[in-house]
Design a protein around this nucleic acid. Structure first.
Ligand SMILES: Nc1ncnc2c1ncn2[C@@H]1O[C@H](COP(=O)(O)OP(=O)(O)OP(=O)(O)O)[C@@H](O)[C@H]1O
Length: 750
DNA sequence: TTATAATTGTTTTTT
DNA sequence: ACAATTATAA
C-alpha cells in the first residue's frame, strides 16, 4: 500500500481530507473501497491514530475482515483493536456491553426472519385470530418497515387502509411484548435499541465519541433510515465521518434502504465535503459503456461522468440459448474454452443471476462439464433444518426464555408432543405472561392444565432439557456442548433414522467444525460468553461471507451477493423480462428502477469480459413459456454487442428423467452422460415457429425500428404471411400491436 | 398423534 | 412443478 502512488488526485483528496464529514459519491469501480481502506491506512500510518479509535462499517462481515486484513499488513496486531463489522454486528456488540441500560439483558438472542414469523404466528393465535384473518407475513412486513425507518411498532406503523386495524395493532403489541419476554431482539431492534442507548445515555455516547475519532461507512446507498439516524447521533458535529456510496448501485430499497441517506448527506451532516471519483479502473471501456447505457435509463440519478483509461476490450457477448439448460451448457462450454486455454483460471469467472432458483441448471451443467464451482448463498447453511434445530438447542441453553427456540425443539426429535399440546403450552404461557419454559414447568406441576398423557410427555422433555442444562453448565467447550446436545437429546439417533441422513450428518459435522474453529479465535473467559458470541455470529452471517477468492473455482451467486466484488469474466445470466427485471419488482417505476440498477451492478462486476445470456424458453409456474429478452438489453448500443444465437438443444421429453433434487458430488456420480446429438430436436415442435405458407418474418426478441415510434423490441408474434401481427414494446415506453407488412418498420441488425 | 391426501401458493433479492 | 401447509383419516 503506497499512499502516494496508488491513488489518483481525487482519491488522494478523499484519503487526506480532514476536518469534518466527507461523502465520496462515485460510480462503479472508481475505487471507493480503496479510498476507505487507504484512508484508514492514512489515519493510522500518517496521522498516528491508534487503530482502536477507528470504526469501519461495511456491508458484509467478509468485507470487514478484508479491510482489517489490509490494515493488519500495515500495523500488525494492533489492527485487532479496530472496530469493524456490519451495522447489525456493531450494534449487537454495543448492546452486549451496555444493553442493560435500555432494558436488554446480557444474554439476548437474535431472531431471524423465521423466528420472527413463528412469533407473529403465535401472537395471532394467542389473540384468538387465524392466519387468514391477519396474515403473518403482512404483519411482519409492517414491523420491519417501521423498524427500518427507526420507528417502534406499534407506534410508527402505517396501517393498511381499513382492514382489521385493531387486531393488527394488538398483534404488534403482543409481538413486541413476546420479544421482550423471550429476551430476544430482531434485526431491526439491534439498530433501534443501540440508537436508543446512545440517545438516552449521554455517558455512553460520550465514551464512544471519545473513543471513535474516525468512522467510515462503505456502501452508504444501501443503509436504512434507522442506521442513518444511529450514525447521526453517534457522530459529533464536525466529526470525522467518511461515507462512500453510489446511488446507481442502490439495490436494497425493498429492505428499507434509502438512497436519500446518501443524496441528502450534506443536509444531515452540515459542512460535509462531497467528492466525486470519475475514473473507473475495473472494466474495459466496452463493458463500462454498456453498463452506463443501462444505468442511464433511470431518470432519477445523480449524474456522473465515469470514464476509463482501459482498453476497449472485447465486445459484450449476448448469447441466446434455447432452454435454461441450454443456457447453462453454453456458459459451461464457454468457460471450458476460456479456462485454461485463454489464460484464465476458474476463480476468474463468476455466474451471476437474479434468483437463487436459477442456480440449479448451472450446477448440473458444471458437473457435467467438470467445472469446479462454489455456490454462494443459496440454502443458507444456518437455515438448514438440522442446523437450525441444533442452534435452537444452543439458544435455549444460553437463554431459557427464548421461547421460539424452545418451541422448535419441543418435538424434535419426535417425542409425542403434537400440535395440540404445543399450542396449548404456547397459549398457557401467553395467558400467564410467562415464558414457554415456565409454562411447561407449570403444566407438569399443576394438574388439569393439560391431559395426563401430555403432562407425562412434557415432563420427559423438561427432564431431558434440565439434564442438558446441567451438563451445559459444566461443559468444557462449545464443541463438547454440541456433542452433548446431539447425544442426550436423541437428536443423533433421530438424524440416523432419516432417509437423507448422510447429507444431514455432514452438515452437523460442518457445524461442529465451525464451532471448533470459532472457539479457537475466542478468548472469552466463560463458556456462556463464547456461546453467546457464537450464536450472534451465526445469526448475523451475510450471504456474501461465504465467497472466497482462495479456492480456484467458478463462483455462482445472486446479483445481490456480488455487490462490491469483481471478476475477470462475468456471465450475467437470465437476461429476460420477468427475471431481470423480475416480475415482482416491475410493478412500479421505483421497483423497475431498482432492477435496472441491479443489472448495472452485475455488469460492472466484470473486468475484462462480460457475457449476457438468456433462454428463449423458460418454465414459470409449471408452464413452459416463451421468454422475452430483458428490456435492459435494448439500452445497450448494438455496436457494443456481439450476438450469438443457439438452437434449442435440450428438451425435457428427450431427456432421461433423472433425479434433479440434489446435484451429485461428481459428474460421474450424477449419471449424466450427455450425448448432444441425441437430444437435439427439430424446431417445428416448438411454439412460435411459423407454419409453412404463413411465414412469420419476426421473432419474439427481434429489435425493430419504426419510422415514427422509434426503436423497440418484438414481444409477441401472431398470424403469418400478410396477416402477421407483432406486438412491440418501444423504448419510449409504449406497447403497440402492428401489422408487420403494413407498418413502416425494419429489423435492426446487430 | 401421526400418516396420508388435498390444496395452496410460490419465485425475488437478505441483514 | 413443486413444496409446504392444511384437512382428513386411521
Ligand atoms: N488509483 C487506482 N489505480 C489503480 N487501480 C485502482 C485505483 N483505484 C482503484 N483501483 C482498482 O479498481 C478496482 C475497483 O476499486 P474499488 O473496488 O475500490 O471500487 P469501488 O468504487 O468500491 O467499486 P464498486 O462500487 O463497483 O464496488 C479495484 O480492482 C481497485 O484495485
Amino acid at each position: 500500500m503506497d499512499l502516494d502512488r496508488d491513488l489518483n488526485p481525487q482519491q488522494r483528496e478523499a484519503v487526506f481530507h480532514e476536518g469534518g464529514p466527507l461523502l465520496v459519491l462515485a460510480g462503479a469501480g472508481s475505487g471507493k473501497t480503496r479510498v476507505l481502506t487507504y484512508r484508514i491506512a492514512r489515519l493510522v500510518g500518517r496521522t498516528g491514530l491508534a487503530p482502536y479509535r477507528i470504526l469501519a462499517i461495511t456491508f458484509t462481515n467478509k468485507a470487514a475482515d478484508e479491510m482489517r486484513g489490509r490494515i493488519r499488513q500495515l500495523v500488525g496486531e494492533a489492527s485487532r483493536e479496530m472496530w469493524t463489522g456490519t451495522f447489525h454486528s456493531i450494534c449487537a456488540r454495543l448492546l452486549r456491553q451496555h444493553g442493560d441500560l435500555v432494558g436488554i439483558e446480557r444474554s439476548f438472542v437474535i431472531y431471524d426472519e423465521t423466528d420472527q414469523l413463528r412469533l407473529v404466528k403465535n401472537c395471532i393465535r394467542n389473540l384468538g385470530l387465524s392466519d387468514s384473518q391477519v396474515r403473518p407475513a403482512a404483519v411482519l412486513a409492517l414491523i420491519d418497515r417501521a423498524k427500518n425507518q427507526g420507528l417502534e411498532p406499534p407506534a410508527g406503523v402505517l396501517m393498511p387502509t381499513g382492514s382489521r386495524r385493531e387486531e393488527i395493532e394488538a398483534v404488534l403489541r403482543a409481538y413486541r411484548d413476546s420479544l421482550r419476554q423471550a429476551g430476544a431482539l430482531d434485526f431491526g431492534d439491534l439498530i433501534l435499541f443501540a440508537h436508543q442507548l446512545l440517545r438516552e445515555h449521554p455517558a455512553v455516547l460520550a465514551r464512544l465519541r471519545d473513543r471513535f475519532r474516525a468512522i467510515l461507512v462503505d456502501e452508504y446507498q444501501d443503509t436504512n433510515r434507522a442506521q442513518h439516524l444511529f450514525l447521526k447521533t453517534l457522530v459529533p458535529e464536525g466529526g470525522d465521518l467518511c461515507v462512500v456510496g453510489d446511488d446507481d448501485q442502490s439495490i436494497y430499497r425493498w429492505r428499507g434502504a434509502e438512497v436519500e441517506n446518501l443524496l441528502r448527506f450534506e443536509k444531515d451532516f452540515p459542512g460535509a465535503r462531497i467528492l466525486v471519483l470519475e475514473q473507473n479502473y475495473r472494466s474495459t471501456a466496452n463493458i463500462l459503456r454498456a453498463a452506463e447505457s443501462v444505468a442511464r435509463g433511470n431518470p432519477e440519478r445523480h449524474p456522473k461522468s465515469l470514464w476509463t483509461a482501459n482498453d476497449a476490450g472485447e465486445k459484450v457477448t449476448y448469447l441466446e440459448a434455447g432452454t435454461p439448460d441450454d443456457e447453462a451448457r453454453a456458459v459451461a462450454r464457454e468457460i471450458r474454452s476460456l479456462v485454461p486455454a485463454r489464460g484464465f483460471s476458474f476463480r476468474d469467472v463468476a455466474v451471476l443471476f437474479r434468483t437463487n432458483a436459477q442456480s440449479r441448471a448451472f450446477e448440473e451443467s458444471f458437473l457435467l462439464f467438470q467445472i469446479p464451482y462454489a455456490l454462494v448463498g443459496t440454502t443458507r447453511f444456518y437455515e438448514r433444518t438440522e442446523i437450525k434445530d441444533l442452534t435452537a438447542y444452543l439458544r435455549f441453553l444460553y437463554n431459557p426464555k427464548d421461547s421460539v427456540s424452545l418451541q422448535r425443539i419441543l418435538n424434535r426429535p419426535a417425542r409425542g408432543i403434537g400440535k395440540t399440546t404445543e399450542e396449548a403450552l404456547v397459549r398457557l404461557a401467553a395467558e400467564r405472561g410467562v415464558s414457554l419454559w415456565e409454562g411447561m414447568e407449570q403444566a407438569v406441576t399443576e394438574p388439569g392444565l393439560v391431559s395426563a398423557t401430555a403432562a407425562r410427555r412434557i415432563r420427559e422433555v423438561v427432564g431431558t432439557l434440565v439434564a442438558l442444562r446441567e451438563r451445559a453448565a459444566a461443559a468444557p467447550s462449545l464443541v463438547k456442548l454440541l456433542e452433548d446436545v446431539l447425544d442426550r437429546s436423541g437428536y443423533s439417533s433421530f438424524l440416523e433414522s432419516l432417509p437423507d441422513k448422510e447429507r444431514r450428518v455432514e452438515n452437523v459435522e460442518e457445524l461442529l467444525r465451525t464451532a471448533s474453529a470459532f472457539e479457537e479465535t475466542q478468548e472469552s473467559t466463560s463458556l456462556s460468553e463464547t456461546l453467546g458470541a457464537f450464536l450472534e455470529k451465526v445469526a448475523l452471517v451475510s450471504e456474501a461471507d461465504q465467497y472466497s477468492e482462495k479456492a480456484n473455482v467458478v463462483t455462482l451467486m445472486t446479483l445481490h451477493c456480488a455487490k462490491g466484488l469483481e471478476f475477470e469474466i462475468v456471465f450475467l445470466v437470465g437476461m429476460e423480462d420477468g427475471l431481470l427485471p423480475h416480475q415482482r419488482s416491475s410493478l412500479d417505476a421505483a421497483g423497475l428502477a431498482e432492477e435496472r440498477r441491479l443489472c448495472y451492478v452485475g455488469m460492472t462486476r466484470a473486468r475484462r469480459k462480460l457475457y449476457l445470456t438468456r433462454a428463449r424458453l423458460r418454465t414459470r409456474y409449471g408452464e413452459r413459456q416463451e421468454a422475452v429478452p430483458s428490456p435492459f438489453l435494448l439500452d445497450i448500443p448494438a455496436e457494443l454487442l456481439e450476438t450469438e444465437q443457439q438452437r434449442i438443444e435440450t428438451w425435457p421429453a428427450a431427456e432421461p428423467r433423472r433425479a434433479r433434487r440434489q446435484p451429485a458430488a461428481t459428474a460421474a456420480e450424477s449419471g449424466v452422460h450427455f450425448d448432444f446429438s441425441e437430444s437435439q430436436i427439430d424446431l417445428p415442435a416448438l411454439p412460435g415457429v411459423p407454419a409453412a405458407g404463413r411465414r412469420q418474418t419476426y421473432r419474439v426478441g427481434d429489435r425493430i425500428e419504426h419510422e415514427d415510434l422509434g426503436r423497440g423490441i418484438v414481444r409477441k408474434v401472431e398470424g403469418g404471411g400478410e396477416k402477421e401481427k407483432i406486438t412491440v414494446q418501444f423504448e419510449h415506453g409504449g406497447i403497440r400491436k402492428l401489422m408487420a407488412r403494413l407498418s413502416p418498420i425494419r429489423k435492426i441488425e446487430r
